[in-house]
Design a protein around this nucleic acid. Structure first.
Lengths: 189, 189
DNA sequence: GACAATATTTGCCAAATGGCAAAAAGTGAA
DNA sequence: TTCACTTTTTGCCATTTGGCAAATATTGTC
């Protein structure tokens, strides 16, 4: 779990005892491609750290189309904060895009860590704020770009991701149709 | 400052002494339409609570076009978290769309409140998380919608805002041209 | 390799949106 | 009211994107 620990250490100090405690609270979960980590309608009761693989967060709009909101790759946390924080039913799915290895914390485990480790809340708040800011900064400029620019920006920011994600999912993430994305790719070459 | 205090009380408990302290740390600022609260290139050193009026956050893209990222209306905090949290130069402007009355806290004032009021950090973290989640939830679905649907969603979520904001700014927020928005409005009537 | 299943590309045309400039409407000051 | 200024609407046409279906390419399995 070296990646997880290193990730946490970016946001605050932890001694060896605390690190061991954190490790003991994490559960390893392996997901096969297209397995769900959490589902709409259910209350999110776990937080996942992606050690290997790619997750995506998606939902169905009022036309029944499946929309990918974002991807979560290695060394990032995945959680439906809306659902987890307020214990309300989730409105989105978290699904494995590739086979995944996750470190999972239950709400109870997090509670234990929060009361035992002084710096825990501060670390979690910093991670929460940072990842939400990143989401806003990533999505927000896309609105002002046309499809081609969005795709190029994606390649630029996540060069290693494009070839690991099916075209259909990437298109839905970019807010365009699969055909359009295919044509855009042809144009760029 | 009743609106500010009521807003804070939604996120945690405060006694009268603490409330008085908070009030004493807030500075009232009035902005005229088009005045800037903060500017790109400078480090954000203040946090504003909008008591009256509308702010907008905007930036210039690589084509030199001015893009409105979002609007902040009454009873919301405005801050460039990227810049304020990490003390790095801001990449965006915060500007008054209408005349505004703001309650402003300096970084020092916030620091004082943090060390004096036990619940302060928890309140601020809750506000931060909630407002960022709202931003993500608001922007994210827009990518999957066409221009007309985006405008209708905006009217739906912010019915009182549309008539207070110039068409050009709203169009840039929606990621479309002013002409297109004008045509969409005509179609809807 | 052969096959089936899945993923991607392409063609065709319709619809949506952009770019630009001019016209029209709205606003505020004298 | 009139004038100047700003904002919004409109016309015209080019470009982008969508919708749908068929063709092609890729992948995994036997």
């Amino acid at each position: 779990m070296v990646n997880l620990i290193n990730y946490l250490l970016q946001f605050g100090q932890l001694n060896q005892q605390q690190i061991d405690l954190i490790k003991s609270k994490a559960k390893v979960i392996e997901l096969k491609k297209e397995d769900y980590f959490s589902e709409a309608g259910k209350i999110a009761r776990q937080v996942a750290f992606v050690d290997d693989g790619i997750l995506r967060v998606c939902y169905y709009n009022n036309k029944g189309e499946e929309i990918t909101r974002y991807f979560i790759d290695e060394n990032n946390f995945a959680v439906d904060l809306n659902s987890f924080s307020y214990q309300i039913p989730s409105s989105e799915y978290v699904q494995a895009v590739t086979d995944c290895k996750l470190f999972v914390f239950s709400a109870d485990a997090l509670k234990d860590l929060s009361v035992t480790i002084i710096a825990w809340d501060s670390i979690i708040n910093a991670i929460t704020a940072k990842s939400l800011i990143e989401k806003v900064n990533r999505i927000s400029p896309m609105l002002a770009e046309d499809a081609k620019a969005r795709y190029i920006s994606f390649l630029d920011k996540f060069p290693q991701l494009a070839n690991r994600i099916p075209l259909s999912l990437l298109a839905s993430y970019l807010g365009i149709t699969q055909s359009s994305l295919s044509r855009i790719r042809k144009n760029i070459r």
